[in-house]
């Protein structure tokens, strides 16, 4: 009797297994899993797809961009929150790395490590990477941060709850609570300017052209040429965030 029972059990088990397996295959054909869909999102074939190129060897660390960003977007100078800021990396002869950003670089830099201890030193401007698969957008509980059709990550300040999930989720540390509005704030790639055909404020005031704002889809555009002529990297590429801020001459020490 016991033997017989085992037999029917096995048949039932196999039937259930077949149903589950078939179901999974059917679901994946009918409606691919959200995450697969998400990772496969491609940039639109028509219309703009904005991003920024940064030429690290052209940055002289003057802080014009940091100042201009604050003025353009009416971000209070203090406390020190920044939509864009500049860091000075100094790699010392003993291979330790010193990273400094006094006041976000707004008032310029003064070298703190003596010349003879320096192996290499350079400036790295930072800003929101306008990711195409933004971790910050994924965690927002109310849909108050999103990727615009032009590929710019924006905040809906009227619906933001100020829950700070996105601040934690951003691997680049580019988000903060605006002390005036008390909701999340971040670089909008000067959305109000670029949608009117202007460049971003930071790129406008750069004395050396270290920042190149542009439309990646525009094959005659400046950014397209920059990406074509130079070898560029994005920050934290291993996180697969789809970053659209491309750095030329990026050192592997930069995070």
């Amino acid at each position: 009797m016991g033997v017989k029972k085992t037999k029917t059990d096995r048949r039932e088990f196999l039937e259930k297994l077949a149903i589950i397996a078939g179901g999974v295959i059917a679901v994946s054909i009918v409606k691919p899993f959200g995450s697969i869909l998400f990772a496969a999102v491609k940039r639109p074939e028509t219309g703009p797809w904005y991003g920024m190129g940064i030429n690290i060897s052209k940055c002289i660390g003057c802080g014009n961009c940091v100042k201009a960003c604050k003025s353009e977007n009416d971000i209070p100078n203090e406390p020190f929150f920044f939509r864009t800021w500049v860091e000075q990396y100094t790699i010392k002869n003993d291979e330790t790395v010193v990273v400094e950003s006094p006041n976000g670089g707004m008032d310029g830099f003064s070298q703190s490590v003596p010349d003879e201890e320096i192996f290499r030193s350079f400036f790295v401007p930072k800003l929101c990477n306008q990711c195409a698969h933004s971790p910050c957008v994924q965690v927002c509980p109310v849909g108050a941060t999103f990727e615009s059709p032009e590929g710019v990550v924006l905040v809906d300040s009227k619906y933001c709850l100020g829950c700070r999930y996105c601040i934690q989720a951003c691997p680049y540390g580019t988000r903060f609570i605006n002390p005036v509005t008390n909701v999340v704030d971040k670089c909008t790639l000067c959305y109000h300017r670029i949608m009117n055909g202007q460049s971003t404020a930071c790129a406008l005031v750069c004395p050396t052209g270290a920042r190149i704002f542009g439309d990646i889809n525009d094959e005659e555009g400046e950014l397209h040429a920059f990406l074509k002529e130079n070898i560029t990297h994005v920050l934290k590429a291993h996180l697969n965030t789809g970053s659209k801020v491309y750095y030329k001459d990026l050192s592997p020490n930069v995070h």
Partner: peptide, 13 residues
């Protein structure tokens, strides 16, 4: 409409 809100800011530079 948040797209319009984000565009609704005066250019300073």
């Amino acid at each position: 409409l948040a797209l319009i809100d984000n565009m609704d800011h005066e250019m300073h530079y």
